[in-house]
């Protein structure tokens, strides 16, 4: 419990900064929405934009004049931001002990490494959950002026659940990268690259029909906002894939880290 509390405190500042950034982003985005909201003329603007470009930004077929349509575009950026937060958090919560050389202190305490990991993973999950909730509160406040209905809130909740699952995927991958790497700088660069690469994969998959299978390699496709809107929910295969990725990565973390030398 002491390690858990320590980690929560240590990451509080980062969580606050990210919360502010996401809140500001959401408020700005929904100020922009004012121009589109129930304004069919604005929707036509998008007709002149090439389809490929719209698809790349997840905007194709979205009805920008409704809350849900607009939200389906915003969701991608929410996913990316929360994903980067999660992957960096996962990487640093383990890697910092070696980066700051505090591992020598912590691991010479009467505690098993797996107990340390348990507390750290717990704190990281809670951080992700809090940030998702804060993003949700931000969105709720931002859309309030457009008098959202029940359907809007349901959709926003689904997006938030999706965002949280995406965070869990990237958190697990970040944890695994840090647990198996002894060079913090490399592992944090690799972690961020992972989010960007999976995003690029999702763009490529959207643009080209010949590489449809790529959709299984990017969490951004698992929870594509436009599809959640169409289907009113998630697809079982992607939830299954998410669970597998999270479990395998965490198994790796708990297997590798307690058995390896600390780099001091």
């Amino acid at each position: 419990m002491n390690v858990f509390i320590r980690e929560m405190r240590d990451h509080l500042k980062g969580l606050i900064i990210w919360s502010v950034v996401i809140l500001v982003f959401m408020l700005m985005v929904f100020v922009e929405f004012e121009a589109y909201y129930e304004n069919p003329e604005m929707a036509e603007i998008l007709d002149v934009v090439p389809r490929g470009m719209l698809e790349a930004f997840g905007m194709y077929g979205a009805n920008l004049t409704t809350i849900n349509g607009y939200m389906s575009i915003v969701a991608l950026y929410l996913y990316i931001m929360l994903g980067i937060f999660a992957v960096l958090l996962g990487n640093s919560i383990i890697g910092k002990e070696e980066r700051d050389k505090t591992g020598e202190f912590l691991m010479s305490m009467p505690i098993k490494r797996y107990q340390v990991l348990r507390s750290k993973v717990g704190a990281a999950v809670l951080n992700c959950l809090l940030l998702t909730l804060i993003a949700g509160i931000g969105i709720a406040i931002a859309v309030y002026q457009y008098s959202p209905d029940r359907e809007n809130f349901e959709y926003i909740s689904r997006i938030l659940v999706a965002a949280f699952i995406i965070q869990m995927i990237f958190l697990s991958l970040g944890l695994f990268i840090a647990a198996s790497s002894k060079a913090f700088k490399k592992s944090s660069a690799l972690s961020v690259a992972l989010v960007i690469i999976t995003y690029i994969i999702s763009v490529i998959q959207t643009l080209s029909d010949s590489v449809d299978f790529l959709k299984y390699f990017t969490p951004f496709k698992y929870y594509q906002a436009s599809e959640i809107l169409q289907n009113n929910g998630f697809q079982g295969i992607y939830i299954g894939l998410s669970v597998i990725i999270v479990l395998v990565a965490n198994f790796g973390v708990f297997y590798v880290y307690p058995r390896r030398d600390l780099k001091l």
């Binding site: 320590r6 240590d10 700051d100 050389k101 505090t102 202190f105 010479s108 305490m109 009467p110 505690i111």
Partner: peptide, 15 residues
């Protein structure tokens, strides 16, 4: 074992 060990490393790195 570490319950009863006090360790003073050669270089101190703390939070």
């Amino acid at each position: 074992v570490r319950r009863d060990i006090g360790y003073l490393p050669s270089e101190m790195f703390f939070y």
